[in-house]
């Protein structure tokens, strides 16, 4: 009688296997926090309702940053919202992903010369998937989410690791543009 021989797995291999199992669950159940600051947010209702039905991919909107996996930045970000966005991003539990909709998050779009709107989102928080277009149509939005799932499968969606490793660089960019990241106003004090 022969017994099956198992080769000894090293700790790294075991960790990787667990991580792959976790990735399977993570990419099939993506919960979004929709940070709808810009006009691209209008593409989300058809993506969620019966026309394209995001829920069949396991995606859905979530109410708070703690529960969400994806931070969906739809459109332009003014300086004031960028502060809140950084707060929100740092509150999310890891692993976390960022999806940028529209050309405003890529290079400023039509607001590229505005005094109040930032030009490049990935200088302040790491972005995993960009969906280009002004505004992107709903197929493109859905395609962006499928791309994110592929990226999670192939372990390339590791913006959250990049943020942790290069925290000083991101922080420096945030301070250079915002002056101060902390929010000081009469409603917070």
């Amino acid at each position: 009688m022969k017994s099956t021989k198992f080769s000894e797995l090293s700790q790294e291999q075991v960790d990787r296997k667990w991580w792959e199992i976790g990735d399977f669950f993570r990419r099939n159940s993506l919960w979004m926090l929709m940070y709808c600051t810009g006009c691209c947010a209008i593409e989300l209702p058809p993506a969620m309702t019966s026309a394209y039905d995001m829920e069949r991919l396991g995606m859905g909107p979530m109410a708070t940053p703690r529960q969400a996996d994806i931070l969906l930045v739809s459109g332009y970000l003014s300086l004031k919202t960028l502060r809140r966005l950084i707060y929100t991003y740092e509150q999310m539990s890891e692993p976390k992903y960022v999806v940028g909709l529209g050309s405003c998050t890529i290079n400023g779009g039509i607001y590229h010369d505005s005094h109040a709107v930032i030009n490049q989102l990935d200088q302040y928080v790491p972005v995993d998937v960009y969906v280009a277009g002004c505004m992107p149509n709903t197929e493109a939005v859905m395609n962006g989410f499928v791309d994110l799932m592929d990226a999670i499968k192939h372990k390339t969606a590791n913006g959250w690791k990049k943020y942790r490793d290069n925290y000083d660089w991101y922080r420096q960019n945030q301070i250079a543009s915002l002056g101060e990241v902390e929010v000081h106003d009469e409603f917070h004090e």
């Binding site: 199992i21 669950f25 039905d53 396991g58 539990s93 692993p95």
Partner: peptide
């Protein structure tokens, strides 16, 4: 989902959600 004329999630979607949450850092 079918009532709202959608395709709807997989029937085991709730399991995926729960195991995903357990696999995340808190």
């Amino acid at each position: 989902g079918r009532l709202q004329k959608r395709y709807g999630p997989k029937w085991y979607q709730e399991f995926l959600d729960i195991f995903k949450l357990l696999s995340k850092r808190a």
